[in-house]
Amino acid sequence: MDQPGVNGISPTSGVSFTPTPAPALAMAAGEIQPIQPEPGKEAPRWTSTPRRHEATFACYARWADRILHPF
C-alpha cells in the first residue's frame, strides 16, 4: 500500500496535498488575540527580507529537484 512520505510526498505517486482549513489551524493555536497596530505593521517588514526569500526559494528548489529527479 502507498504511504505518504515527508510533506505528503509519496515515493511512487508523486505529490499529494491535503490542505487544512484556516479556521481549524486558528482553533488549534488557541484564542486569537488582538495586537497593537504598530508592531503589526512592522512584522511584514521584518519577515520579508531578500535573504529569507533566497533561502525559501532554495529550499523549494531542492524539494522540487528531489521529486523531479529522484535518482
Score class of each variant (00 low, 15 high):
I67M: 10
I9R: 02
P21F: 12
Y60D: 04
V15G: 06
R45L: 12
P34S: 10
A64R: 08
L25D: 06
H69E: 08
T56A: 15
C59R: 13
I67N: 01
S10H: 11
H69L: 08
R62F: 02
R62I: 01
A22Q: 13
P34R: 03
V6H: 07
I35H: 13
E31C: 09
R66T: 11
F57K: 07
N7C: 13
R62H: 05
S10V: 05
A28G: 10
I32E: 15
R66Q: 11
L25Y: 04
D2N: 11
P34C: 03
D2L: 02
E38P: 00
G5D: 00
A29R: 10
T47H: 06
P21A: 13
N7I: 15
A58I: 01
R62W: 01
T18G: 03
F57H: 12
A64E: 07
G8N: 03
F71R: 12
T18D: 02
V15Y: 08
P70S: 04
E54T: 11
V6M: 15
I35Q: 15
T49V: 04
P23W: 06
P19W: 11
P11K: 02
G14L: 02
D65H: 13
Q36E: 14
L68V: 08
L25A: 07
K41M: 13
Q3V: 15
A29L: 12
Q3R: 13
A43C: 05
P4I: 01
M27D: 15
E38F: 09
S48Q: 11
T12I: 03
R62D: 09
M27A: 15
A24M: 13
G8F: 01
I67C: 03
D2M: 03
A22C: 04
V6T: 10
A58C: 01
I32V: 14
A24V: 12
A43G: 02
Q36N: 12
S10F: 03
E42H: 06
A58N: 09
A64W: 09
L25Q: 08
E42K: 11
P23R: 05
V15K: 10
R52C: 00
R62S: 04
P37E: 05
A24C: 05
S48P: 00
M27I: 04
E31S: 15
T47S: 06
R51Y: 07
A58D: 09
I32F: 10
T49P: 00
D2S: 05
I32P: 05
P4G: 01
S13L: 06
F17K: 07
I35E: 14
T12P: 00
A55G: 05
A61Q: 13
W63M: 14
T56K: 09
P34K: 07
E31A: 15
T49Y: 00
T49K: 01
A29H: 06
A24E: 15
P4K: 02
P4A: 03
T56H: 10
Q33T: 13
